[in-house]
Design a protein around this nucleic acid. Structure first.
Length: 487
RNA sequence: GCGCCUUUAGCUCAGUUUGGUAGAGCAACUGACUCUUAAUCAGUGGGUCGCAGGUUCGAGCCCUGUAAGGCGCACCA
């Protein structure tokens, strides 16, 4: 049997007293005339007038003065101060505040006035309890600090930490502006399966699940790519999807097992066209949401004015290390990696070694938006061979503030080549790479019907939100980040 | 996976070089107070010190294990 805490017991007693007074602590609705923000916005205009306003919200502060009181009500738009006087609402009714607590929802009617200190306030003539709160809110000036509690009980975090809500509203506005740009550019927003019989389009371990009706195992998608390209085959010229993907891998401040990706595909375009599209998309979205295309991330001023710098990956390595890897074999590349003091596992194919050198020696320096292009073919099984450079593909990644912000290519549309790339992946899988991509016969069949030349792009929306809001943990841009269950 | 750190009242935190009756502020409760806003004033209650062991006459503190979380590294398009 659980012992009832002192505070909870007080609230249970208050609830009982309310019911004895025939007051429903959980009534059904309240007709507002104004939000708190609207009252404050129109405050000067309606102040002193006879117009009655009705507002509602959660009591977040309460200052009792015997026969009068001040409180703040918090609603979705902000906070509004209310002033309640015993002789205006009646002594009995005023006494109800003995049964109210910070955290309760209240609906009030009254006229707007300005206090001596200049704050727009509702002088309450009537009020009604809208919902009783049974648990105390965190303390008023330190708020809720404990990260574990903030993530597990995001609802409390949102009540008491104003900036948290701002980030999530920013997130929504950003996604809206991304949609607006793509919609206005003739892209069609589509939906493709989350539950897939095969997974593909990225290197990652999937989550698996089971469908009872068909008695088959299914995977939660790790990317939308292969289905969106099927739609290009089907005759859509420009498609995009904003959706959750799921990767069964480690979690840290840049990775949550489920995250939001935006993928887009454009027929008759190559990766040069996609670079242009992407830099314009980012410049537009940032300007729409921030009001400017310049912002601070991690102590650096970032400027999103197109065009972004473009540099092939091997040249970027040469620039930052002096090492020219273009004509080196696996053994020589390994030697160079060792000399460069790259501390990662070096017993890997050349492509992986290049990646490792790039990540440690180049990536941290890519502060201003930079397209890194022309990746080795073994790292890019869904990208077309480079039209002039053997062994490389027409692929780019964007980096901003040292963070990877997307991946794109001239999409491979040669079905025979695609089959060979899948077979190479199968070889990697046999050698123990559990993130190698699996052969998708139906996807190859789609390519065999013919896919036009196509440029495609995918990027993590969460990370874009992080960079634009100068946030350093993905958990701060996802409402309910993955946590171990309590107890 | 490895290393470091955190865990004490509803919340934010103290708790000492050297183990000796569990502390503060806010929140709560009682009373006073009709323009306050960290309201003020007087008083009161509230603890399985994450959990389990160990050392000790005695552990919030020392030791071992364990759980959750954070940070860094590794892994990871």
């Amino acid at each position: 049997m659980e012992e009832t805490s002192e505070i909870l017991q007080h609230r249970i007693d208050k609830l009982k007293k309310l019911k004895e007074k025939n007051i429903n602590p959980y009534p059904y609705s309240f007709k507002r005339t104004h939000t708190s923000a609207e009252i404050i916005q129109n405050g000067e205009k309606i102040e002193g007038e006879q117009t009655e306003v009705k507002a509602a919200g959660r009591i977040v502060s309460l200052r009792l003065h015997g026969k009068s009181l001040f409180a703040h009500l918090q609603d979705g738009s902000g906070k509004i101060q209310i002033y309640v006087k015993s002789d205006e609402v009646g002594q009995d009714k005023f006494g109800l505040f003995d049964l109210f607590d910070i955290g309760d929802f209240l609906g009030v009617s009254g006229k707007v006035f300005k206090t001596r200190t200049g704050e727009i306030t509702v002088r309450v003539t009537d009020f009604v309890l809208l919902a009783k709160s049974m648990l105390p809110l965190p303390e008023k000036w330190h708020g809720l600090q404990d990260k574990e509690l903030r993530y597990r009980q995001r609802y409390v975090d949102l009540i008491v930490n104003e900036d948290v809500k701002k980030i999530f509203i920013f997130r929504t506005e950003l996604i809206k502006s991304l949609r607006r740009f793509l919609d206005d550019s003739g892209f069609v927003e589509v939906e493709t399966p989350v539950l897939q019989p095969l997974y593909g389009g990225a290197f990652a371990r999937p989550f698996t699940t089971h469908q009872n009706a068909l008695d088959i195992n299914l995977y939660l998608r790790i990317a939308d790519e292969l289905y969106l390209k099927r739609l290009i085959v089907g005759g859509f010229d420009k498609v995009y999807e904003i959706s959750k993907s799921f990767r069964n891998e480690g979690m840290d401040r840049n990775h949550n097992p489920e995250f939001t990706m935006l993928e887009l595909y454009q027929a008759y375009a190559d990766y040069h066209d996609i670079m242009e599209l992407y830099e314009n998309l980012l410049n537009y979205a940032a300007t729409q949401v921030l009001g400017t295309n310049r912002f601070e991330f991690d102590g650096n001023q970032i400027d999103l004015t197109p065009p972004f710098k473009r540099i092939p990956i091997l040249e970027s390595i040469k620039e930052h290390t002096g090492a020219d890897l273009s004509d080196k074999n696996e053994e020589e590349t390994k030697k160079i990696a060792t000399e460069l003091n790259v501390k990662e596992n070096l017993n890997r194919p050349k492509g992986k070694l290049i990646e490792a050198i790039f990540e440690t020696k180049v990536q941290p320096h890519l502060i201003q938006p930079t397209f890194i292009t022309d990746f080795p073919v073994e790292m890019s099984p869904l990208a077309k061979y480079h039209r002039d450079k053997p062994g490389l593909t027409e692929r780019f990644e964007l980096y901003i503030g040292g963070c990877e912000m997307g991946n794109a290519f001239s999409e491979l549309n040669d079905p025979q080549d695609q089959r060979e790339r899948f077979q190479q992946q199968a070889e990697l899988a046999r050698r123990g790479d559990d993130e190698a991509q699996v052969l998708d016969e139906d996807f190859i069949r789609a390519l065999e019907y013919g896919m036009p030349p196509t440029g495609g792009l995918g990027f993590g929306v969460d990370r874009l939100v992080m960079v634009l809001t100068n946030t350093h943990s993905i958990r701060d841009v996802i409402f309910f980040p993955q946590m171990r269950p309590e107890e």
